[in-house]
């Protein structure tokens, strides 16, 4: 058992025993190798289910929305960024949440591990000293942990919790500044090429809404795609409807997306939503000097007016 796991269990037991929270949202072992799964602990006796490992990738802040209970939540850097935005947008009251912050070394993408190790039937994964060691019961195979991270974790600028009530584990060093180099190539292409790329990605979308539902900031009580009177967006796979859904979603997240990558990880079809979102985040960073979720005191750029806001789009180019 890792130190973080032990400390999370200890803090959860304490919070529940002291009656400070009604439940704690954390992770427990998944039913499959390379998976952890969200869990909801209400009894101090159940804290032994809680774990912390390289596969705790879900953004648990998503479960705070419309909760009417006092909640303890195990939160990585990106989860706390989402909580910061939810507090700013008055979806969560700070006093109703107890944040068990966990500094994060980046979460591991099971697809990367499987890709590397091919068809071996992975049963165990050890995460030690920057290496992942996968075993199939007979052989052990090793790979660099950094090579297996989710895309969002590779460009993460906030691995430590932004806010927390209890900090579990050692703070980690934040990495170098993020210059959005991962979308630089995309941005440099012609409009036609960008259109072709995005249209190609969208052609695989099956409209399952997993990207929307996994997103901690997609909390509209009625999403525009669920409107039926009148119907705003067709529900099928017509390319214009698919693109409308994704473009409107990404624009609605402008200045709010905390770049946690939950949408990308949830997508069953491997649609490159990351490029679209990151490109939008790059614009928000450049135009408004804002990285959502990093500064609890800073108002959201697109819900406030500042006379110095860029206004060139209103003028002739």
């Amino acid at each position: 058992m890792t130190d973080c796991t032990a400390r999370i269990r200890e803090e959860t037991a304490r919070l529940l025993a002291e009656g400070r929270v009604d439940l704690v949202i954390g992770f427990e072992e998944g039913s499959l190798p390379l998976r952890a799964t969200p869990c909801f602990i209400t009894e101090p006796g159940d804290t032994g289910r809680l774990i912390w490992n390289a596969f705790c990738s879900n953004n648990l802040a998503r479960y705070l929305i419309r909760s009417d209970r006092k909640v303890g939540i195990v939160a990585k850097g990106c989860d706390t960024r989402a909580i910061v935005e939810l507090i700013k947008e008055k979806q969560v009251r700070r006093e109703d949440v107890v944040i068990i912050g966990v500094p994060c070394h980046g979460m591991v993408d099971p697809h990367e591990v499987r890709e590397r190790f091919g068809d071996i039937r992975i049963q165990t994964v050890e995460d030690t000293g920057g290496k992942l060691v996968a075993g199939d019961g007979t052989a052990l195979l090793s790979m660099n942990r950094e090579d297996a991270l989710h895309r969002s974790c590779r460009v993460c600028v906030q691995r430590n919790p932004v806010i927390s009530d209890v900090l579990v584990g050692e703070e980690v060093e934040e990495r170098t500044r993020d210059e959005f180099t991962d979308v630089a190539d995309f941005a440099s292409r012609s409009a036609g090429e960008r259109w072709e790329y995005i249209a190609g990605e969208m052609s695989r979308c099956i409209r399952c809404n997993a990207c929307r539902n996994a997103c901690p900031l997609c909390y509209c009580s009625k999403c525009f795609v669920d409107e039926t009177r009148p119907q705003w967006v067709g529900r099928g796979t017509d390319p214009s409807d698919v693109l409308s859904f994704h473009l409107m979603r990404v624009l609605h997240l402008a200045g709010r997306c905390v770049e946690c990558g939950a949408c990308v990880r949830a997508c069953p079809m491997g649609v490159d939503l990351g490029t679209l979102n990151r490109r939008m985040s790059a614009d928000v960073a450049r135009m408004f000097g804002c990285r959502p979720g990093l500064d609890p005191g800073k108002p959201a750029p697109l819900s406030t007016f500042d006379p110095d806001d860029p206004q060139d789009f209103m003028l002739e180019p």
């Binding site: 799964t37 909801f40 099956i206 399952c208 996994a214 119907q231 529900r235 949830a266 069953p268």
Partner: peptide, 27 residues
């Protein structure tokens, strides 16, 4: 308890070979 962590997305239905529910839309 079982549904608590469910995100309410349609992955399970849409990848399922047996799920067959549909909507009818006029456009």
């Amino acid at each position: 308890t079982l549904a608590e962590k469910c995100l309410g997305c349609g992955i399970c239905s849409y990848l399922c070979p047996a799920c067959h529910c549909f909507d009818i839309v006029d456009e």
